[in-house]
Design a protein around this nucleic acid. Structure first.
Lengths: 205, 205
DNA sequence: CAAGTCAGTGAACAACTGTTACCACAAGCG
DNA sequence: CGCTTGTGGTAACAGTTGTTCACTGACTTG
């Protein structure tokens, strides 16, 4: 979509990415509202003023982090819901996909879980918007399944929201779990999803 | 349980409560990890050093806030689950009880929702402990209901956790909702709870 | 190749932070 | 009553913060 950009832009993007990475690292032990601009630049090794070339404020950086963290989740969510097999197999597959994603990108999902109700309004809004997008995607995915005949659009959206929220909570539980607790978290999450699926099957009774 | 304590202790408790109240107010627009000790004392109108007479740090104050905020929730949760009537009536009652509690103590539940995944480890742990206690209470409450015959203890605990998490998420949704959206949030929460209840009814099939 | 653009630098600013040591003075107690 | 206890206040400390201004020098463009 864009022709090869000059060495100038490349270097700029590299610094910008370094700022994002450093911020994500620092946010493992604090919230965005306490993240200082100087703290980030110090971790990267650039002058504090360089920050302004990329972001207006740390809140702005937070919004960029939301895009980065949730952008990579779109394919996963889609793959989770549209998997083949019966209900039980799909749930197992979904839970292990979540576990893998948390293992590979812990800082990203920690950031989302933390700032979803965090102290920075713009970041909360950005996360809510992306989550609504997820929910809508899951809804259309669910709509194509045979179990969904006779469902109203509203009810499908409700079910999708329930699934999405449950996924994020499961991811958060994986994060806090010690290595020894991971299996138990997975089993609990599986049973929760199974109960929801059972509720889905009898919703129209 | 304690005999009337002297005017000394009374004044101390009053200051302590003022610090807690001021902190809760300040935390509506930021997270605990960015809350400064001086900020709190300034809001109360006492010297910064007075803070140390009551708390070691702002993290300590956060733990105290957890007790205050979740202590008042115990009776509500119990009343929610053990209400009389059929499943649908109990759900409606629970949702409106949540709505009322959010309306009356918005700062408390905002604090809990925010710091549940917040940047302060000790506060996260305190919230997790209280939530586990809630879940256990709901479990024993559920165990006494006729719908629970044949359920294993593990499955009851799973269901209780699902309910408790759903309640907190509903409370959080009420918080972010504009006055015009409140009714829609209530309806969505009701439908979610209903689906879970349906899943419960057919769990042993 | 000259001119201009712009990412990053360095110094300075006023304001703020947590923490310390020391003091004042009212309450509690022998 | 005198003595101790302990809440709260004052003053000062070394560091930190966000933001400004003028600057350098490598890249881009005409």
């Amino acid at each position: 979509m864009s022709h090869t950009l000059g060495a100038r832009q490349v270097q700029k993007q590299k610094t910008r990415q370094a700022l994002l990475d450093a911020a994500l690292g620092l946010l493992e032990e604090q919230s965005l509202s306490s993240l200082g601009l100087r703290e980030v630049t110090r971790a990267v090794g650039v002058a504090p003023t360089a920050f302004y070339r990329h972001f207006h404020s740390t809140a702005d950086l937070g919004v960029a982090l939301v895009e980065e963290a949730l952008g990579s989740l779109h394919p996963m969510i889609a793959g989770t819901v549209s998997a083949s097999g019966d209900s039980g197999e799909r749930i197992d597959r979904a839970v292990s996909l979540i576990a893998r994603h948390v293992r590979e990108h812990p800082a990203h999902i920690r950031f989302i879980a933390r700032e979803r109700n965090g102290g920075v309004q713009k970041v909360r809004a950005a996360i809510a918007e992306q989550m609504a997008r997820f929910t809508a995607e899951v809804r259309t995915e669910l709509a194509g399944q045979p179990e969904s005949v006779g469902w109203s659009d509203d009810d499908l959206l409700m079910l999708a929201g329930l699934y999405v929220d449950q996924m994020l909570m499961t991811a958060g539980a994986f994060l806090e779990a010690t290595p020894g607790e991971v299996d138990q978290v997975a089993r609990e999450a599986t049973r929760r999803m199974r109960l929801i699926s059972i509720g889905r099957r009898h919703w129209l009774d």
